[in-house]
Write a protein that binds this DNA or RNA. Sequence first.
RNA 1: GGCCCUGUCGUCUAGAGGCCUAGGACACGGCCCUUUCAAGGCCGCGACACGGGUUCGAAUCCCGUCAGGGUCACCA
Length: 551
Amino acid sequence: MPAASADTVVTRFAPSPTGYLHVGGARTALFSWLLARHAGGAGKFLLRIEDTDLARSTEQATLQLLDDLRWLGLHWDNAADLVYQSRRKHVYDAIIESLVQRNLAYRAYETPEELDLLRKAAEREKRQFVYRRRDLSAEQVKQFEGEGRPHVVRFAMPVKEYRFHDEVLGKEIVLGPDEVQDFVIKKADGMPTYHFAVVVDDAEMRVTHILRGQEHTKNTFLHIALQEALGYPRPTYGHLPIIMNLDGSKMGKRDRDKKIRAATQLHLKNTRQSPSDVAAAASVAVSHFEEWLNNASKQLDLPEQSALMHVIGMTESDLPEILVHDFRRNGYFPDALLNFLALLGWSPGGDRERMTMTEMTELFSVAGIGKSNAKFDRAKLLAFNTQHGEATPAPQLVPAFRAYLEVNPDSPLQRASDDQLVKLLEMKKGFRLLREVDEASRFLFVADDQINYDPDAVEKVLRKNDRQGVTVLQELGDVLPNITDWRHETIEKIVQQYCDQKQLGLGKVAQPLRVAISGGTVSPPIFQSLDFLGRESTLARIDRCLGTAVY
RNA sequence: GGCCCUGUCGUCUAGAGGCCUAGGACACGGCCCUUUCAAGGCCGCGACACGGGUUCGAAUCCCGUCAGGGUCACCA
C-alpha cells in the first residue's frame, strides 16, 4: 500500500446505519469535514457505510444518514463510489485468508457461551480476562470441523507494547503487553468485525487522518497491530471527547423513546385507558405496543412515535432533541447547529464564537480540540439559531425553510409561495426556531371558517371587563370596511385613530383583533397580519368570531 | 474492579509561569423598550475540584486525593 504524499489530508466519516444520525456523530463528521476542507485542494472527505452488522443495519437508516449529512451541508467527495462494507466481503475474506496462511490469524471454536464462562471465571479470580491462542491438536480441529461447529477467525496479536500519538490529547497512549489479546476479525456469520474492516478500508481509501469518538481510543491498538501485520501505513489518530446531556447523563438515541414510554405509562394510569385502546388509536399493533411498553430495550420507530405522541397529547417540544433529524424538524438552521456543535470541544481561541462555515474551515485545527467532555446546552444552541435567523436576510432563509417544511408535511405552510415565506420570516423577525414562524402563522393559511377559537383567549380578551373586547371588535367591524387601501401602514393609521378617539391603549384593541383573526393571543405583529390576510378574510373572521365564539 | 483519559463561572470555553483583583458567549437576576410571542439595549450575579510541592512568582509545571468519563463483545 503506497503511502499518500505528505501534504494530502484524507479524512472519512464511517457511520454504521443502525438509526438516524446522532448529534455526536454529526460533530465527528463535522470535524473530519473541516480538517479535510482546511487543507483545500489537498484535502478529501470520504464517506463509508459500516454495515457489517447484518442484523442491525438497514437500508432506510443509510438513506436517512445521507439525507441528514446533505442537510447539514457536509458533502463527501466519494459520492460516485460510496463504500459499503457489506459489499466488500470478498476483499476481506481474501486478506483474512492470507493472514491465516501466514499463521498470523487462526480459527477459534469457542461459542459465545463458553467465552462468557471464561470471562466470569476470570472476574471471580479478580484477574483480567485475556484471550490468547490455544493450541488445538489436529484431532480436535478435525472433530470440531466434522461437527460443523461454527468458528471465528482471530488475529494473533503480537505480544508487545503498543503506542501511538493521539493528536487531540497531544500525548502518547500506551498499551502494555499484558493487555494484549487475540481479537476476532471474522465473525461466525462470515462477516469481518469492525476492527478488521476499518483497517482494510482506511488503508485502501488512503485515509491519512482519523478523527473518531473517545470510545475508540483503546481500539486503536488493535488497529495498529493489524496495520503492522498487513504492511499498511499508520494514519494520524485523534479521539474526540464525548457529548453529554446537561444533567451529565449520556446523550443516547433512546432518550426520546424513553421519555415517550414514561409519558405513555403516565397517560395510561391517569386516563385509565387500556393499552390496546391507545395502541389502536395510534394504529400500532397491540402486541408490538405492549412489548415496547414493558421492555426498555425495544424502540418505536419514528412514525409510530409521532402517532402515539398525538394520541397521548405530547408535542415535539416535550422531547429532547438528540438526532440531527430532530433539529431539522424543529426548525434549526444547519449552519447554526454546526457552529454550535463545533464549539462543543473545539475553539479557535480567543473570544471567537460565531463563524460561518468558511471561517470555521479557515480556523480549524486539531490542536484546538479540547480534551474534556462537553455538556449539550440547548439554550445556547437556541441563541445561536436566533442570531443566525436575525443576521441572515429573509430571502436567503427560504431554502432552509423549505427543508424544514419537507420534514413537516402537516404544516399548512406547505401551500405558501416563496414570497409568502419571505414575508412570514420578516414579520416574525426575532424568531428562535422556524417552527415558531410556522406555528405562529398557520392561521394565515387555513380557511376563514376553520379557525379554532381558544376558549381561554376568548374569555380573557373578549368577555372580561364587561365584554370590552367584544365592543371593540364590533366597532372595528364598522371602521375597517371603509379602508380601501388595505396596507398595514394604512390599517395602523386608522386603528390608531380609533384608539385615540376611544381613549384606548393599542393593546386593548390589538388583542381582540388578534383573537378574532387567529383564534389565539399570539401572532405576528397585528397590522402586518391583517395586511397579509386581506380585507375580506379579516372582516369575515371578525364576523365569525363575534357570531360563533363569543356568545 | 483492572486499564486509559479528563477536571476554569450553572453550561460552552479563552488562558500554554508574571499581561488574570481570570476574558467572552449562553443561561440566570434587575431595569428599559413594547400591540401578543419573541427580538433588542443597559446593568448585575458568577469559576481556576481539594491538598501538598517546584519557583521570587502558578489557573498554567510535578505528586497525591477526590470527582467525572471511556473501555474491558462474534456492536460499531
